[in-house]
Simulated assay, not measured.
Amino acid sequence: MNHWTTTPITEDVLRGAADLERTEHGLLPHRLPARARAQCADPQLASAESQPSGVRLSFRTSATAIELDVFRTTVDLLGFPPRPAGVYDLLVDGRLVAQASATGGDARTVDMATGAVETRSGPVDTLRFTGLSPDAKDVAIWLPHNERTELVGLRTDAPVEPVPDRGRRVWLHHGSSISHGSNAASPSTTWPALAASLGGVELVNLGLGGSALLDPFTARAMRDTPADLISVKIGINVVNADLMRLRAFGPAVHGFLDTIRDGHPTTPLLVISPVLCPIHEDTPGPGAFDLEAVRAGTVRFRATGDPAERAAGKLTLTAIRQELARITAQRAADDPHLHHLDGLALYGEADHAELPLPDRLHPDAATHQRMGERFAKLAFGAGGAFAR
């Protein structure tokens, strides 16, 4: 029988979270700090930031068996296809060796027509990883990028210690649901996680599904987060939320970057414009579900705006790319550490012809892989914004 060692879950063994909230079941990792969360009551943001994209348990051990107790919360929309279960990735010395999914927890079903929520509650679940090498090794358990996860307990059959500091740079990234990991196969294979692995850096992922909206509290959170490298991917959520017009967008971008610079005056800062999304290239938002597709059993999105309103400042992805290129060129005259990357270099027309967006908005697993590899080459490679 294994002799189990229980390790408290603290910041010493958890990476990628802004803070930990004690709940009825255990500890809930948050990717935005409490002060930021208190400034916005949007349920979409609350859901996104509590899904631990990029958050992982990280420790060094010679354990051959690991048990992790978790309490998950899933959300499905009434009448829509069920969402896939979240995946836990176990990496040993940077290599994926096992995966698991949790059961139990709270399962919420939302009726979008009435706003009613039905909740079915289940128990805490225990994930078990066995058959590991008895050698000393770095272990990382990446939490599901798309499933709220409360951490209840961590047990191993050998002691655990924090991973020693190996001088890896910290990359802080903010973006939309694509950066959050929508439609990626697992948490360590979202495009930012893949790029971080290839670039040899530690990821802090502030990809917030539906919520990359130039919010001042997000900028302040980034200002206050220690980082050696910073990137912001801006555009798609501003369009599909129909949040602002061109007159407001430019100053909002300046303000967002100004706030980050208040805390990171000389840190390499990369502004990334949107990847290709044909429905919004020249058609403004708001975006919406394609209900005919939903009735047929699949999820797709559509743009509902009027292209004629572009003349009045309604935003499209084409307009946002032009504005971001202009703003970064203007600021770079006084900020040599500011850089720009056209999102079409990560996913453009040729990529769409080969790997179309399955739901017309989010890339699939193969496209996450391609975008991660492309970003690593463009940003971390020779001549890139994040090259050493």
Rank of each mutant, 00 (worst) to 15 (best):
Ser186His: 12
Pro187Arg: 03
Ser188Val: 05
Thr189Ile: 12
Thr190His: 05
Thr190Ile: 08
Trp191Gly: 00
Ala195Cys: 13
Ala195Asn: 04
Ala196Phe: 05
Ser197Tyr: 11
Ser197Arg: 12
Leu198Pro: 07
Leu198Thr: 10
Gly199His: 04
Gly200Tyr: 06
Gly200Met: 07
Val201Asn: 03
Glu202Leu: 11
Leu203Arg: 01
Asn205Arg: 08
Asn205Tyr: 04
Leu206Ile: 09
Leu206Glu: 00
Leu206Asp: 00
Leu206Tyr: 08
Gly207Phe: 00
Leu208Ala: 06
Leu208Arg: 05
Gly210Ser: 11
Ser211Glu: 11
Ser211Leu: 10
Ser211Gly: 09
Ala212His: 05
Ala212Met: 15
Leu214Cys: 08
Leu214Asn: 02
Thr218Pro: 07
Thr218Cys: 13
Arg220Phe: 03
Ala221Met: 10
Met222Ile: 10
Met222Ser: 08
Met222Leu: 15
Met222Asn: 06
Met222Tyr: 04
Arg223Ile: 04
Asp224Gln: 11
Thr225Ser: 12
Pro226Thr: 00
Asp228His: 06
Leu229Ser: 03
Leu229Val: 05
Ser231Met: 03
Ser231Thr: 03
Val232Gln: 01
Ile234Tyr: 01
Gly235Thr: 05
Ile236His: 02
Ile236Lys: 04
Ile236Ala: 09
Asn237Ala: 09
Val238Phe: 05
Val238Arg: 02
Asn240Ala: 12
Ala241Trp: 13
Asp242His: 11
Leu243Arg: 13
Met244Glu: 09
Met244Asn: 07
Ala248Gly: 11
Gly250Cys: 15
Gly250Trp: 12
Pro251Leu: 11
His254Arg: 12
Phe256Lys: 01
Phe256Asn: 02
Leu257Arg: 02
Asp258Arg: 07
Thr259Asn: 11
Thr259Ala: 15
Ile260Lys: 00
Arg261Leu: 07
Asp262Gln: 13
Asp262Tyr: 03
Gly263Ala: 07
His264Phe: 10
Pro265Leu: 04
Pro265Arg: 01
Thr266Gln: 12
Thr266Asp: 15
Thr266Asn: 15
Ile272His: 01
Ile272Phe: 00
Ile272Ser: 01
Ile272Pro: 00
Pro274Gly: 07
Pro274Thr: 09
Val275Phe: 12
Pro278Lys: 08
Ile279Gly: 02
Pro284His: 09
Gly285Val: 10
Pro286Gly: 10
Gly287Asp: 08
Gly287Phe: 06
Ala288Ser: 15
Phe289Thr: 10
Phe289Ala: 12
Asp290Pro: 11
Leu291Gln: 14
Glu292Asn: 15
Ala293Ser: 14
Val294Lys: 08
Val294Trp: 10
Val294Pro: 09
Val294Cys: 10
Val294Phe: 15
Ala296Leu: 13
Ala296His: 11
Ala296Met: 14
